[in-house]
Amino acid sequence: MDARIKYSVLLVGIGLIVAILPYNTAESFRLKSHDLLIKSTSDEIWLSVDQVARFMNNEDSTVQLIDLRSTEQFRECNIPGSINIPYSDLLNPFWEGTINQKQVKKIFYGNSDQTACYAWIIATGLGYENNYIMKGGLNEWFKIVMFTQFSGQKITPLENALFENRFNARKTFTQINSLPDSLKRQFFHSKRLKQSKLDGGCE
């Protein structure tokens, strides 16, 4: 038989199969459900606000804070160094490069745990690694970092370090968030520029 007909039948057959594939895997979770469940029950995905405050104070470049709240809420206040990816915009291909990389720890936060958990499980399910959640979100941040006061007679070295960390974080948070929007944007723009230079890439 003519090879042309054989190849045509093969191609059309495969085409028919591809056309009836029931779901579009590029848009679905890549992890198997059991693996995802095991990962999501792990305690290692949580970071405390004190840990995040330390990252922020040290301007640690191995972490990227991701603020999942709306743009308006982000403008009002955010943890310095974080970028704003509103949760509704999480799957925008524009953010792919930020979320889909494992060199930098991605720390998701919202106002509480809920949105951060959604985002964490979506990112992890899609097969992206190195995702974390700031436990308690910004509510916890305000409660612990912004508003706790030391009340006691004697301070242990451990407590001293903890409170110094919180105090520094509080100072930076207040200062940067008090800046007018234009300067804030300038600050983040220069930070992002630095980041994109590090990443390189096609465009």
């Binding site: 106002n111 305000f142 912004m146 508003f147 968030n177 008090s178």
Partner: peptide, 13 residues
């Protein structure tokens, strides 16, 4: 997901 605190800006910064 409600923010229970209000950020108080430091106007001298």
């Amino acid at each position: 997901e409600e923010l229970k605190y209000k950020f108080q800006p430091d106007t001298t910064a």
